[in-house]
Amino acid sequence: MTEGKVEFELVSPERLLMSETVDMVVVPGAEGDFGVLPRHSLLISAVRRGVIQAWKNNTVSDRIFVAGGFCEVTAERCTVLAEEGVRVDDIDKDAIQAELKNLREDAADAKTPDERSAVESRIAIHEAMLEAAG
């Protein structure tokens, strides 16, 4: 453990997305964004859709889009369990646009309310992803 640093881990069900030691992590919590600095108090929070920022040397070193999940903070660690995560730099806008188009068609075809709400949440995720990519 390095003094004055936070061990930041981001895991999705499919793999470990990131595991690094950083200065600060900004997490989009369910009740507002919060920054995690070393010696943060113990916290478990839900994470809403948005971008997680990892800070190193006063600059944002990594920006990762997550579709939601949970975050556990201890004095020296910040662990985010994301439902889905992708680095903002890796977001392929064209692919997302195409996917969005498909999803919108699916939404129009959806028969049951369950199906529709599932598709709509996918749309919302993709829209947020686009927005994050800016």
């Binding site: 919590g29 108090s41 478990i44 929070s45």
Partner: peptide
């Protein structure tokens, strides 16, 4: 340690 975790929103919702 878990006894002093704070939760956001509350435990039940999480």
């Amino acid at each position: 340690a878990s006894a002093v975790y704070s939760y956001e929103p509350d435990e039940a919702e999480i």
